[in-house]
Every structure is written in structure tokens, then in C-alpha cells.
Design a protein around this nucleic acid. Structure first.
Ligand SMILES: [Mn+2]
Ligand SMILES: [Mn+2]
Ligand SMILES: [Zn+2]
Ligand SMILES: [Zn+2]
Lengths: 146, 146
DNA sequence: GTATAAGTTGTAATGATTACAAGTTAACTA
DNA sequence: TAGTTAACTTGTAATCATTACAACTTATAC
């Protein structure tokens, strides 16, 4: 069985995307660091390794990967676009205290009431929750002396 | 039974928000035009009626209404923040052809697998779908001569 | 009616994303 | 393997929604 990484290269080739070293590094990074990073984060983390890398290239690459269906845009926060290379359906939770984005299991179709989207062609689904994560809740409790 | 509009005024007062004529017009507009308008749309539609209105005021007012829990931010599209004054839980569908945002019935909790968000404090939930609406699907079929 | 904190307004600043043009290179072919 | 070319990369400039700011105005409390 072929590793995940090679599968993704194949998908890129199917979409007529060239395999540059920039794209390889970005793809590799996304596969190994699944924390919904922003373009800015990806750029800064790869820069030491690829000193000539341009932020424009990261933007271009992410757009290409989205169009190829390899990554998904996560727009849980209006002010920053994040990206997710994980395939399985899941929801996203953003902690309003530590700003981390967590995955959680969900089956969107279970919540859809039948007939509600009759006649609609659905291309993408996203579930976004916001609140406070368990770690931050604990911190808040430790601070409060009630 | 008191009308919806007066209830909203009461909520504003509870949150120590002053009742200016700008805010009244915006609130009235939102109650009567439930199409998930952007700040820009709200501004342009009210401008004939309130010639001195500033777009900054619309931004400020929407922020105040969000904080008071009177309207909800709809971030289905990264490039435009929309607002929704409807209270009942529902999902949003954005047509990638006509760019309209439609409501649809949903029960988010039905799709949540138990234990998945154990220990998280959830403050807000959003379900965003994208695709093609029935009207646009019909238009596409009429154009294709297959 | 007065005091004052809150709201309004126009303008400037911000910041993420996109547009663009010149230089570079992956991939195909002979 | 070298030549060709469209695709990719890069730095810089432009865009545009949103926010910051400061002076002016007003809703609300007493
Ligand atoms: Mn995820
Ligand atoms: Mn709605
Ligand atoms: Zn947290
Ligand atoms: Zn449509």
C-alpha cells in the first residue's frame, strides 16, 4: 500500500499541478502538522528551510491545493483563513481564550431535517463552534478563588 | 403580547445601549429584511433615509448588537461578514452562483457524537454549506442543450 | 436644565489577500 | 540530453473590508 504522501502527489499530477520543491515542502508540512495553520504560520515555519520562499507562493499553493481537493479552507475565524488536510468529516471548535482550533467528531447529515435542502446541490459542509476549551476552563477555575 | 421590536429595544436597554435614531433604523431594517445583509448593504439601503449615516456607525452598531446577543455574525464567506437577527437555530447555505444565503432547518446536536465535546464550553454554533441553489441549477439546465 | 458618558462621523491606518510583471523551472518531446 | 514552453516563483504594489482615532453631538440620569 502506497503511503499517503505519494497519493497526494498523484492527486496533484491528476490536476496538472507541477511538483516544485516549494509545493513538496508545503504538502509535507501539512501532512505532518495537522493544526489548521494559516498561510502566515506555514510561511514562517518553512522559511528557515526554504529561505527563498515567498508568502505569495504559499497563498498560490494553498489555492491550488484547495482547487485540487487536497486541502479544505477553514473559515471559523473571519480574520484568518486556516487549512485542513484531514479527509474524514469532522467539525471545528475554536477556543476564544487560547485561539486553538480543535477537531471533533460529527455527522452533519444526522442533524439535517429531511426535505430542508431538497433541490440544492451541496458542494461543501462546515460546522464551526466557538467557546472555551477544557484546558482554558481549568486555568480560569484556578485563577478564580471562589 | 408585546411586539418583537419592543422586546429588542428592551434587550438593548438591558445591555446599557442607548437608543439612537441610527440604531432604531438599523434594527427596524434588520427585523423587516431578513436576508443576511452585509454592513455595506445595510449602509446603502438606509442612506437615502438617513443621509448623515456613517458606515462606521453601522459597523459600531452591528458590533453592539452582536455583543447584546440580538444579532449573530454569519461568516459563511471569508470576504464578507453577514448578520442574522433570526433567533431559531438554523443552518446557512450559500449559492456559489447567485451568492444568496439561504436558511435551512437543522439540529446541530443531533449530529454531535456523544463525548466528542466533553469538557468544552460551547458559546456559539454555525453550520455553513455551499453549493448551487435550485433556482441556479434550473438556469444551468436551461443553458445546457444536452 | 445640566452634566457626562456614550454614540456618531469622517478620515486615516491596518492587515490579510490579490494583482502584476519579470525571472525561473518542471515537464514534455525529439 | 537539450530545447521549448507553459506553469511556477518571487517581490512589490494595489485592494478592500474592517478598525482606530479624535472632534463633535446627543441620550440619559439627576
Ligand atoms: Mn480539522
Ligand atoms: Mn439565517
Ligand atoms: Zn483554550
Ligand atoms: Zn443560486
Amino acid at each position: 500500500m502506497k503511503p499517503l504522501f505519494d497519493d497526494l502527489i498523484d492527486v496533484m499530477k491528476k490536476h496538472r499541478l507541477r511538483i516544485s520543491k516549494q509545493r513538496l515542502k508545503i504538502l509535507e508540512y501539512l501532512v505532518h502538522n495537522r493544526h489548521h495553520q494559516t498561510v502566515d504560520q506555514i510561511y514562517h515555519e518553512l522559511h528557515p528551510d526554504l529561505p527563498t520562499l515567498s508568502k505569495t507562493t504559499v497563498y498560490n499553493t494553498m489555492k491550488a491545493l484547495v482547487q485540487a481537493g487536497i486541502v479544505k479552507e477553514i473559515g471559523i475565524d473571519e480574520h484568518e483563513t486556516r487549512y485542513d488536510i484531514t479527509k474524514e468529516e469532522h467539525g471545528h471548535f475554536k477556543c476564544e481564550s487560547c485561539h486553538n482550533v480543535y477537531d471533533f467528531p460529527i455527522n452533519i447529515d444526522d442533524g439535517l431535517k429531511k426535505g430542508g435542502l431538497e433541490g440544492y446541490l451541496v458542494n461543501s459542509k462546515n460546522v464551526y463552534l466557538k467557546g472555551i476549551c477544557p484546558k482554558c476552563l481549568l486555568d480560569i477555575k484556578l485563577v478564580n478563588t471562589d
